[in-house]
């Protein structure tokens, strides 16, 4: 199973600053291992952020994003105590969803 994300959501002024750290190898499919064999592509394909269950960000990512990627979002209209849920799926069908509350 995929490792948990680390999510931070803090109100700064009138926006909510959401930072997400994802644990993922993000293999491009273009690298070779020590034996010269191609390492198969393995990367996060879709990404959603929901605030109290409502999707506020929906995006697609590709193999050009680094390993263990960091994402930052600024969301207007969030209040302390709101629930932030971040979900991703990768090209092999693995999924992960984690949540935090806005501080």
């Amino acid at each position: 199973m995929a490792d948990p994300m680390k999510i931070r959501a803090q109100i700064k002024g009138d926006v909510c600053d959401i930072r997400v750290l994802m644990s993922h190898p993000m293999e491009t499919g273009q690298r070779k291992d020590a034996d010269g064999k191609t390492i198969p592509a393995h990367f996060i394909q879709t990404l959603t952020v929901a605030l109290n269950g409502k999707t506020v960000v929906s995006g697609q990512t590709a193999a050009a994003v680094s390993r263990n990627p960091v994402f930052g979002f600024k969301v207007r209209g969030a209040k302390p105590g709101d629930k932030v849920t971040v979900s991703w799926t990768d090209n092999r069908g693995a999924k992960r969803s984690d949540e935090t509350t806005v501080a």
């Binding site: 990512t61 979002f73 209209g77």
Partner: peptide, 11 residues
């Protein structure tokens, strides 16, 4: 995003 929220995404 939905519900009028503006989100900026940085990679």
């Amino acid at each position: 995003g939905a519900c009028g929220a503006v989100a900026a995404l940085s990679l």
